[in-house]
Simulated scan of single mutants.
Amino acid sequence: MERLLDQWEEDEEPLEEDELPEHLRPMPKLDMNNLDPNNPEGLLQATKKGRTLMTFVQVSGNPARDETEEITKLWQTGLWNSHIQAERYLVDDNRAIFLFKDGSQAWTAKEYLVEQERCESVTIESKVYHGKHSAKYKEEL
């Protein structure tokens, strides 16, 4: 069966870089001269350019699943209106995953999300950013 597949693909032209599955695409080229070594988030954002990235978002209070659905849907619409494409999946009654095809957009989305009144926290690459209206954010000040 494998040989049949090899014969089938033998005369095929190779795929363009952007048509390859993500795990076969080359890593983006980083110009270290343009990156600020004192800004680790900027470096991380640059390395996630063109890569899929999941961000966890927690809604404050004790919302029902339907309420979380509505709130996160509004947030997703706000992101789309800012030309940030994110797919949204509920994982718990008060948590959702926002999936970015271009991972570098996650930090721009985080800036929007933490400003929202019902945002408890946003987690990107295991780093938690508390919403500006959350009790933990106010404790940090």
Rank of each mutant, 00 (worst) to 15 (best):
M1N: 13
R3W: 14
R3D: 15
L4N: 09
L5G: 03
D6P: 02
D6E: 15
Q7A: 10
E9R: 13
E9D: 10
E9V: 13
E10W: 02
D11N: 15
P14V: 02
E16T: 06
D18Q: 15
E19G: 06
E19D: 15
H23A: 08
M27T: 08
L30K: 02
D31L: 08
N34I: 12
N34C: 11
N34K: 11
D36M: 09
P37W: 05
P37K: 06
N39C: 04
N39G: 04
P40V: 13
P40Q: 05
G42Y: 11
G42N: 11
L43H: 07
L44P: 01
A46H: 06
T47N: 04
T47K: 10
G50L: 11
G50P: 06
R51C: 06
L53E: 10
M54T: 05
T55I: 10
V57S: 08
V57Y: 03
Q58A: 06
S60L: 11
S60T: 13
N62Q: 09
N62Y: 00
P63H: 03
A64N: 08
R65H: 04
E67A: 06
E67M: 06
E69N: 10
E69D: 13
E69V: 01
T72D: 03
K73N: 12
K73G: 11
L74R: 09
G78A: 08
L79G: 06
H83T: 03
H83P: 04
I84T: 03
Q85E: 08
A86D: 03
R88A: 04
Y89I: 03
D92A: 12
D92H: 07
D92K: 04
N94F: 01
F98W: 00
F100M: 02
K101W: 02
D102L: 00
G103L: 05
S104L: 00
A106Q: 02
W107T: 04
T108I: 07
A109H: 05
V114P: 06
E115R: 10
E115F: 02
Q116W: 08
E120T: 12
V122M: 14
V122E: 09
T123Q: 14
I124N: 15
I124T: 11
I124V: 15
H130L: 13
H130M: 15
K132S: 02
K132A: 01
S134P: 04
K136F: 12
Y137G: 00
Y137D: 08
Y137M: 10
K138F: 13
L141Y: 09
